[in-house]
Design a binder for these strands. Structure first.
Lengths: 226, 226
DNA sequence: CGCATCTTTGAACTGGTTCAAGATCCGTGG
DNA sequence: CCACGGATCTTGAACCAGTTCAAAGATGCG
């Protein structure tokens, strides 16, 4: 718990603006955990008695469709909250799977409920988190399920882009397909195309340096009026 | 305010499980209002000092894209809450426009904040509402932006279906396009097709009786294993 | 080293778009 | 009350982005 106060992502995470007094209210253990790429954090319908804050890595939340295929509903990046629904429902609504090795904090629902009741700080924070989840959902729809396949892939690259060095780690083609609502082949072809024209430059297997400007133009979120 | 306690949609609406004591906490006016089809409830960025509960009608929430076109992010049906973001932000995140003549209650943010602080009932209710908003967003994505155009139109018809008599009022083709991520022409063609094969039977201009079973099969959300 | 998995590429096909022309609906004013 | 004009809806035909199916490279792991 002490660690929360020194946590690297504290600025972003759920407990970001708790005071020292707030922290005193916490009695149950907040568990520090790591899961490997491809590991399942939880499945839809699983009993939900804790929620999670992502410290590092990348988590995808998916819905499985009637026909067995999956659709990625949104991604969670470091600082984001996973499984908020635990507070109002006794089971999880999505499948949560790690796209990269990830570290997270597992926070029992009881802790959040107590803080929610007794700390105005966290209470507000909680509403804000929920708001963010809605905004991210909406954004995901307009960014990743709208426009041509080329636009979508470009937007995904930018979304995954590490601002520090304009690099990004792309998930498997099948996951990309499930995120963008396109086939793995189309995803593959477009990435190949971006590689050919230098919008995407491979560092190693799945890590790329990106030409942000060029991708923004392709994505259509841009000042192409130049 | 007394009216809230007798409200027809009370079972569904934000204030559904408030006690009499809770109601005593309300001092500011809750305004009863009606807006016509095509009217704008608010625009993205508008100053947000109230939220809304929909009593009757249908509201669309949209994002405008860089290229000027719009994308419907989700629909709100009677009983739903509109503009929750007013609680955590000082401006609205979407454009809210009526697809049908609608009646709503306008609830000042101050009222909700006060109740949120002082009524555990409403507090829980509020988190639930937020959860619903997320779920609906996610659902909207998997239902209305996934699969073939035919599947999507079928799902939209079922979504808009009035369970009481298996009828539905379809919005303009352009709106349908913006909801499903397809062109107005495609929407028109598919509706014409549904009409030809009797999945959709016109009552008047925009109201249809629907063959629910058949549409469920087309939508793919179904026991077609028969 | 060899097998399983994932990615890339090719070629044919098709669902949906695009552009364009009619048809239909509806409010308005004569 | 009807005729006009703008908007919405429908339909057709050509086109193209993306899918599908299939097969050939990569990659990684035991």
């Amino acid at each position: 718990m002490l660690r929360c106060r020194r946590c690297g992502v504290r600025q972003l995470a759920l407990f970001n603006d708790l005071t020292d007094d707030d922290f005193k209210l916490v009695h149950l253990p907040i568990e520090d955990m790591a899961i490997a790429k491809r590991a399942i954090l939880y499945n839809a319908g699983d009993n939900a008695n804790a929620l999670f804050t992502l410290r590092s890595g990348l988590i995808k939340l998916t819905h499985y469709l009637a026909d067995g295929s999956q659709r990625v509903v949104r991604l969670v990046r470091p600082g984001g909250t996973i499984g908020l629904e635990a507070l109002v429902s006794d089971s999880f609504a999505h499948h949560a799977e790690a796209l990269q090795d990830s570290t997270l904090c597992r926070i029992p629902v009881a802790v959040v409920e107590k803080l929610d009741r007794e700390s105005p700080h966290l209470h507000k924070q909680l509403l804000t988190r929920w708001h963010q989840a809605v905004m991210e959902s909406d954004n995901w729809l307009t960014q990743m399920s709208t426009g041509s396949a080329r636009e979508r892939v470009a937007r995904l690259c930018l979304y995954l882009c590490d601002d520090a060095d304009d690099s990004c780690v792309l998930p498997g083609r099948e996951d990309i397909g499930a995120m963008l609502g396109i086939t793995t082949e189309t995803a593959s072809r477009i990435i190949a195309e971006f590689r050919r024209n230098g919008h995407l430059n491979p560092r190693c297997r799945s890590e790329f340096d990106l030409d942000v400007k060029a991708l923004q133009v392709v994505a259509g979120l841009d000042h192409e009026a130049a």
